[in-house]
């Protein structure tokens, strides 16, 4: 997965590579272990819904949707090409099967997923909604509006996952908006909170199980991650928020990942 994402970034000049590499395990676990969805029926009204609230992680989402059979992997060859729907952020539903919401402007995805979770409750649909947020996204006031409303209404079929890689676009997330103590904030806002290693599949899948078991509160999984995870010279280096790899860097990254192109 990382190999494909890095190659896409290099070939199509798509940035946010560090932000993509930090959420690979989270999205992989979601799409292969957790979400009750089917590529044969992407619009099934009884499906689970996932909103990539951190829309700049789109390259991971597109890769995963292709691998899960929502569209042919070959379609991703057009990533970044003029006229393609595969660019830096997910477009609105209807253009790429499996995409539930257009995101990219931060702070919209969680409230939209909350609306979808409320709809499931109203319609009597036994399904869940998930949203993946970045830590920088928690700067947005709308996230905390949604947090308060979801807790107030006890929307227990909603799980938020925070890709807590400790960076935002131009600096440390803690230094810019004093994010810590992040878990305590969500707890004080009335959510069921779990802190996990966001690169450990066992911890991720266990957290999803516990979130589902909570029947009175919305759940948040604060997933500690490393921006640029998997490539030594990208890890925890925020330059990879904007940079795309040149050919030498691409070769080095692929070599580190032990997969030769």
């Amino acid at each position: 997965m990382r190999r494909r994402i890095i190659k896409t970034s290099a070939n199509a000049r798509i940035p946010h590579l560090g932000s993509c590499l930090s959420c690979v395990e989270l999205l992989t676990a979601l799409y292969w272990k957790e979400l009750q969805i089917s590529s044969d029926a992407p619009n099934d009204p009884e499906r689970d819904r996932f909103v990539l609230s951190k829309g700049h992680g789109a390259p991971v989402l597109f890769q995963i949707l292709a691998e899960r059979g929502f569209f042919p992997v070959k379609k991703l060859d057009e990533f970044g090409q003029p006229g393609s729907v595969f660019h830096e952020h997910p477009p609105k539903p209807g253009y790429i099967p499996g995409v539930e919401a257009a995101t990219g402007s931060l702070g919209h995805g969680l409230p939209m997923a909350l609306g979808m979770a409320i709809a499931q409750r109203i319609q009597g649909v036994d399904a869940r909604c998930y949203a993946l947020l970045s830590d920088g996204e928690c700067n947005e006031g709308s996230i905390w509006e949604a947090a308060m409303f979801a807790a107030g209404q006890q929307i227990e079929n909603l799980t938020a996952i925070i890709d807590y890689n400790k960076w935002q676009a131009t600096g440390r997330s803690q230094e810019i908006m004093s994010l810590d103590p992040l878990s305590a904030k969500w707890e004080d806002f009335g959510w069921h909170v779990q802190e996990i290693d966001g690169h450990d599949f066992v911890e991720i899948t266990n957290a999803f199980c516990l979130a589902k078991a909570e029947k009175t509160k919305p759940s948040v999984i604060v997933a500690h991650t490393i921006k640029g995870k998997g490539v030594s010279f990208m890890e925890d280096d925020n330059n990879w928020h904007y940079r795309t790899p040149n050919q030498n860097e691409l070769a080095s990254a692929l070599e580190e990942l032990n997969v030769y192109s």
Partner: peptide, 22 residues
């Protein structure tokens, strides 16, 4: 739904509800 004094969340929730068939 009394959405409180939080219009950004109210509007996004409404779009999520509408996308779900409401």
């Amino acid at each position: 739904l009394n959405c409180g004094i939080a219009e950004a969340n109210m509007m996004s929730m409404a779009s999520g509800m509408a996308l779900s068939g409401l």
